[in-house]
Design a protein around this nucleic acid. Structure first.
Length: 107
DNA sequence: ACTATGACTCCCA
DNA sequence: GTGGGAGCCATAG
């Protein structure tokens, strides 16, 4: 596994249940601010349950793709409490990295 | 080394 | 809101 993939997975693992992050935000977080597409490639290869790749969405807040289907991705997110309207996740569900060391803000 | 591909994004009409 | 086009960068072949 490449070091790029490791970085993507490590950051993705830190997204809490009930929150989402964007491909672009992850790319930026790992020091590749233009690498959103590469992040998608890396996540697309993951099949491990340890990496909650269903919590990664597009910048426009539409859900995006998923190895087991978009339907499944939406279903899991809803189960986790993420509100989805007209195919887009609620802004309030966006994970903000700067809150990492604080208590989870109310959604 | 080079080309093609894609779980993306931005910009403009 | 929508659709097309270009730019982007890690991978695969």
């Amino acid at each position: 596994m490449s070091s790029f993939q490791k970085r993507v997975y490590n950051v993705t693992k830190r997204i809490p249940r009930g929150r989402v992050a964007t491909y672009a935000a992850i790319a930026h977080k790992i020091g590749a601010p233009q690498g959103a597409r590469a992040v998608g490639n890396a996540l697309g290869k993951n099949r491990s349950k340890d990496v909650p790749c269903h919590r990664v969405v597009r910048s426009d807040l539409s859900v995006g793709r998923y190895a087991w289907g978009t339907k499944k991705k939406i279903q899991i997110l809803k189960d986790e409490g993420v509100i989805i309207n007209a195919g887009k996740v609620n802004k309030k569900s966006l994970w903000r990295w700067q809150y990492l060391s604080r208590r989870l803000p109310q959604v």
